[in-house]
Design a protein around this nucleic acid. Structure first.
Lengths: 312, 312
DNA sequence: ACATCGATGTAACATATGTAACGTAACCCA
DNA sequence: TGGGTTACGTTACATATGTTACATCGATGT
């Protein structure tokens, strides 16, 4: 029996039929210890899912307020976890629900994605769908630093959970110079790629702050560049590697001319621009992208929503 | 705080944040005992749901075989529980998933429903949807015997979980005589009702057997009528109160002329005719409705599916 | 006013689950 | 072939959960 099948069977017996782990062990001819491990793994891998058929009144209210305040098409507010380590997971849960519904009801032809922990968690929480006509593509270059939150893994993860087509953007997030960037994107293959990125039906991204908490700050910035320099130039965070000030405008800094991602004016033409992010360190960049209209669907946690609404 | 809200909060802390019941008790200023009760209730009422992001290979195979063998538009096979008391619940779970997807993707304008335990469980397992343009209506008369599986409760239950419109069929399942039935349905209000029933986009029903296990046999049959009489007349079960033989044809019996439900030839014109039922005592009637084409979507358990496929 | 009933707190207990410790077998690689 | 690593069985233990027993309180009905 395939391992996934084993997980489903054990989990069904436990959650639906209400058997104890010992009873399941006897039924399936394994040890109780194995059953315990299988059940944990089933929850961990998303084979078994816990969901809620109700939303908190507080979230509903905050969502309405966010939509109104920032002119959003939609908003999703998830409860803020007391353990900050859980922020990506709860955001991913909320985003997965939203994306799943959007995909099933609106059938987008193409989805552009960013990368990072929140996106990783979104994949984890999504229900498998069968959408072979959908193209999932990276919206920007990626880290050379390999990890499962890297752009390649994220695109592939989404493509797999959706059974969709996978389109990589095979470039780093930053070129060595503005001239180098211009040389790269002047090539026909990249022209085509940028054109397609700008034409996606849905963009699903996260944002980064300007601190050592940001993976991009840690692994993506060119030599000699630091968060201090970016902050000094007025940066409060980044969207697709473009550092923005509090008003949501790109800071006047050479780095923003080295970035391999769509121009903001092109990005704004995408119909559905989703940003999922949260936590205290993201409040400033979230406010920037919401206030400036860069994002028209915001997925965040309750504390962040309140902070956004309280900001002048 | 509203009770449902209390359940969601406690369940979130337990299932998402991973707190123990004692920790939750302290957080919410209640006793651990209350937390334990709330968590149980959340699962029981469907506020919290366990779902599976994978299907068993066996089910997939059986579904394909059922579709092919009986010319079905679709089939759903759920694992057969070892405890027969769970049959309604597991069928309801499978049916809820199917119906939820169908409603979201195909947006039917109207749904006709039957009544019984399986339908009761379907409601229980469905996710709340917001479909105010959908009309949910009874497809047949109901029991005078009050219970939550009664036609009125079922229609209302579906209407509530879908936030849809509710249309009752205010009549008993059987009239006193064929003449009485004809007199009833000749009235304009019932003519209108029957017309609308026959025009639903989706019919979702269960079937009954001819034994004391059937609630209809126990509470719905007129005076002097028994399962023995019906069996002797060739009945293997009923669909919408119409007793059918093994070939899926109505038995030649006066009872079938007293019944307040659509004629079978009218029923066949409904585009999506779903029957959910299972268990050993239902095999004969399931085979009858599948073989005869009365049903074009079948939801059943694995053992029943195998029995249906093995029948000549 | 009194009796009854249901909800719930408190405390205890039974059982189920999660995990640690140790040993063994299987697998892989040099 | 031998050594190292991993997976897993066995056993025990810690803790978490589910449930019981009893008492109390508040609400309701007569």
């Amino acid at each position: 029996m395939e391992h996934r099948e084993l997980m489903v069977r054990a989990a069904w017996l436990y959650h639906v039929e209400g058997l104890t782990q010992q009873q399941i062990a006897e039924r399936m001819n394994v040890t109780r210890r194995r059953v315990n491990e299988i059940l944990s793994e089933a929850l961990e891998t998303g084979v078994v899912r816990i969901s809620f058929d109700s939303v908190l009144a507080e979230s509903v209210e905050l969502e309405a307020k966010l939509r109104q305040r920032f002119g959003l098409k939609d908003a999703v507010v998830v409860p803020s976890p007391s353990d900050p380590a859980l922020i990506h997971s709860v955001l991913g849960r909320g985003a997965a629900g939203f994306l799943g519904r959007l995909i099933q009801t609106q059938k987008p032809a193409s989805i552009g994605v960013g990368w990072g922990s929140t996106l990783r968690e979104t994949i984890h929480h999504m229900l498998s769908l069968n959408e072979p006509q959908i193209k999932v593509r990276s919206m920007m270059g990626g880290l050379t630093h390999g990890s499962e939150i890297n752009t390649f893994e994220i695109v592939r993860g989404f493509a797999q959970v959706l059974n969709a087509q996978c389109r990589y953007f095979a470039a780093p997030i930053y070129a060595e110079s503005a001239e180098s960037r211009d040389a790269i994107i002047s090539q026909a293959v990249f022209q085509q790629t940028f054109k397609q990125i700008c034409e996606v039906d849905v963009a699903y991204l996260s944002v980064g702050d300007v601190s050592q908490q940001s993976l991009q700050v840690r692994y993506g910035l060119p030599e000699g560049m630091s968060e201090k320099i970016l902050q000094k130039a007025g940066a409060v965070g980044d969207l697709m590697g473009r550092y923005l000030n509090a008003a949501g405008k790109e800071i006047d800094h050479p780095l923003n001319r080295q970035v391999l991602s769509p121009e903001m004016e092109d990005f704004r033409r995408i119909g559905c621009r989703i940003v999922a992010s949260g936590g205290a360190h993201k409040h400033r960049i979230l406010h920037a992208v919401a206030q400036s209209g860069l994002v028209n669907v915001l997925i965040t946690d309750a504390d962040s929503a309140r902070a956004l609404l309280a900001a002048r």
